[in-house]
Amino acid sequence: MNTELRVEITTQSGVQYQGAATGVVVPAALGYLGIRPGHAPLISSLVTGIVTLHQEEGDAYAAITGGIIEVFDDCVTILADIAEMAAEIDVARTREAMRRAKERLQAAYEGPSVSYADLDIDRARLALARAVNRLHTANKAGLLG
């Protein structure tokens, strides 16, 4: 049996990561899911969260949103809507995005008529979740100092 997993993280805008890992943890729909070599074939949907790649030289992290994961024959394929490796995260821009999302939410809640089904509120919430997730990922990778 293999002792390594081949991991590929791909989005509509190209392959984000390709490499080997001894274990992978992904944000599956039912909670974080750990995968080791020899895992049974699996398909799951993914939510916003952090992908952790356990590697001999240390852990690598990626922030992802949505999509699916397939495990088959020690190949882990992550097809995400959005995916960024920790090193690629632009912390300043993410903070700015977070601030804007918070402002939008603040304005919506303090506004005269709050409609919780409002599309803009939903979008702001999702944007905030993504920004927070990116910052968490960057923090895990030790990029925030």
């Binding site: 729909a29 049974a40 074939p41 699996l42 398909i43 799951s44 949907s45 699916i68």
Partner: peptide
């Protein structure tokens, strides 16, 4: 080949296949 589907097979296939 028997996949494990999470959350459940039907729901997942309904997302993956049209995608």
């Amino acid at each position: 080949l028997e996949y494990i589907f999470e959350p459940d097979a039907e729901q997942l296939i309904n997302t993956v296949v049209p995608m």
